[in-house]
Amino acid sequence: MTTILDSRKLLAFITLARVGSFTLAAHELHLTQSAISHAIKSLEQDLECRLFDRLGRRVTLTDPGHHLLDHANKIIAEMQSARADLAAMGK
């Protein structure tokens, strides 16, 4: 069975890609740096590819990372849209 992508890991991935730092991503998501690191490591293991190049304290997306970012942004946007639609139905 194929494992589906975890939304929390995707959110950590998107945030890290945008800010370029595990520390800044952790701060923005109100998580520990270790939690972000574990989420990214787990996502990379799930997908069997490296998503970031680590250059000291900074990170940059690899080619597979850029590809995933396009998908991840769409997935998160759809999830937000679904929540908004359902919330509107409940009013």
Rank of each mutant, 00 (worst) to 15 (best):
M1P: 13
M1L: 07
L5F: 05
R8S: 03
K9Q: 11
L10F: 07
L10V: 04
L11I: 11
F13Q: 02
F13G: 09
I14C: 11
T15F: 02
A17C: 12
R18K: 11
R18Q: 12
G20M: 09
G20V: 12
F22Q: 10
T23A: 14
L24V: 03
L24H: 03
A26K: 03
E28Q: 13
E28A: 15
L29Y: 02
H30E: 08
T32W: 08
T32F: 03
A35F: 04
A35S: 15
S37E: 05
H38P: 00
H38A: 05
H38R: 15
I40Q: 12
K41H: 14
S42R: 12
E44A: 06
E44C: 08
D46E: 15
L47V: 08
E48M: 13
R50F: 00
R50A: 04
R50T: 12
F52M: 13
D53L: 12
R54M: 11
L55P: 01
G56R: 09
G56L: 07
T60W: 10
T62Y: 01
T62N: 07
D63Q: 15
P64K: 10
G65N: 04
H66R: 14
H67T: 11
H67E: 14
H67V: 13
L68E: 02
L69K: 06
L69Q: 03
D70P: 01
H71Y: 14
A72K: 00
N73D: 10
N73I: 11
K74C: 05
I75H: 00
I76W: 00
A77K: 11
E78N: 14
Q80F: 03
S81R: 10
S81V: 05
D85Y: 06
D85V: 05
A87H: 12
A88K: 08
M89V: 09
G90T: 13
G90W: 04
K91T: 06
